[in-house]
Write a protein that binds this DNA or RNA. Structure first.
Lengths: 229, 229
DNA sequence: CGCAATTGTCATAAGGCGGTAACGTTGCGC
DNA sequence: GCGCAACGTTACCGCCTTATGACAATTGCG
């Protein structure tokens, strides 16, 4: 199972260290910063799987970071868990309405934070939590690195597998070639856009079994989408 | 936008009534039961979009319901928000690890519950939480790049789709050809004004299904407007 | 090292889509 | 009812987007 990558934004250094230690013990990789502005940069560059965000940090406030992450192109869908020292209901609601996925009040136990992060990730990125993805008659098990269709095992190259996994994590949504390159090949990969077409074709070929329809929909001038048939 | 359907499992009847009232005021449809076993049946039959579950209810306990929902074929992916009177950390963690998506301790404010339910739904079913345009019997989902009318999917070219999207973002307003060119084709596009007519025609054609009226209104010497029928 | 699998790129084919012009139709003032 | 102006409709052609197959470079592995 791939270890999920967290971005931890917390200016209380002893707490940050403790959390980093605990999360790493749970098999997460942790990027940590006490600074709000740097957090935005890191979120963009590193594309973490989840952000843990203190309400009050240096530089830019937590809620402002939350808003900017949601507005940012590459970070709009990163799940966010907010932490705060204040137990004001207003704050909690504002946090959630700004787009946070969960919200904890200090003092909290690391175990609960870990449980909540796990719950959010299970929901958003099932593959990261070791769960089986299922869309239509296609199944993908990230842990054993296997994909099947109607029980029949599919033969896919590494890139096709990653592409399929990404699609199955976001069924129905249309992704541009650039988005696919960022998500599947990695941000900043200097790859020809048209290469995506080729891999889409290879994926389609790999997904074909007897009497099967094509789950990959071409959306002209927009990109591709994956959906149950 | 179709209103999300909630299954509320709560045996404190006055609280259940209050919550039902508040959620309905927010545009949700609510199915309510105080009984654990009945909840399982309802979840299966009604396929709600989200379940709000009290930890301690009659019949079968909340955590057991949670577990069974997760195991059930049709209900394995229903998001679950748990409520509990006890603020024991152990319970919260067990709840989250059992598969709940969120967890609230009584007493809580209805507003916070509503905010959390909204956050979970946004995450799980983006289509239920906006991002979906709806005018009359026509729906447009930008995320999946789909347009439907009375459930029937519409076939539109890229430009028609952009045009429809723009219209649906500003229903009822009249736009001149120049305005439409700027908005849909982009400012500075050097396109013949009358070309708009042709695309209006193509859009009208694409929006036609059996017994449908034309949602595009021609305003002589002014432009076009889009409105519910 | 040799072989097979994989991957990124390109050239070419296929096809849809868009812009334009030309012509038909409708509405409006007189 | 006439004439003009605005709008509707159609057909066409060129272009842009996508599909596909081939190929060389690279990688992994025995």
């Amino acid at each position: 199972m791939p270890s999920p990558r967290l971005l931890l934004v917390e200016d209380d250094l002893s707490l940050a260290e403790l959390l980093q230690y605990r999360f790493e013990a749970e098999g997460y990789r942790v990027i940590s910063t006490p600074d709000g502005d740097e957090a935005l940069l890191l979120a963009e560059e590193q594309a973490p799987d989840l952000v843990i965000l203190d309400w009050m940090v240096e530089g830019t406030s937590g809620i402002e970071i939350c808003r900017r992450l949601r507005r940012g192109k590459g970070t709009a869908h990163v799940p966010i868990v907010m932490l705060t020292a204040r137990d004001a209901e207003e704050d909690r609601i504002r946090g959630l309405e700004t787009g946070a996925d969960d919200y904890l009040t200090k003092p909290f136990s690391p175990r609960e934070l870990i449980a909540r992060v796990g719950a959010v990730l299970r929901r958003v990125r099932p593959a990261l939590a070791g769960e089986m993805l299922e869309v239509g008659d296609i199944r993908l098990d990230a842990t054993s690195h296997r994909a099947t269709r109607r029980g029949q095992s599919l033969q896919l190259g590494p890139t096709e597998f990653r592409l399929l996994k990404f699609f199955m994590e976001h069924p129905g949504r249309v992704f541009s070639r650039v988005q696919l390159l960022d998500a599947v090949w990695g941000t900043g990969s200097d790859i020809e856009l048209r290469t995506v077409d080729v891999h889409i074709r290879r994926l389609r070929k790999g997904l074909t079994i007897e009497n099967s329809t094509d789950p990959v929909r071409t959306v002209r001038s927009a990109g591709y989408a994956f959906e149950a048939v």
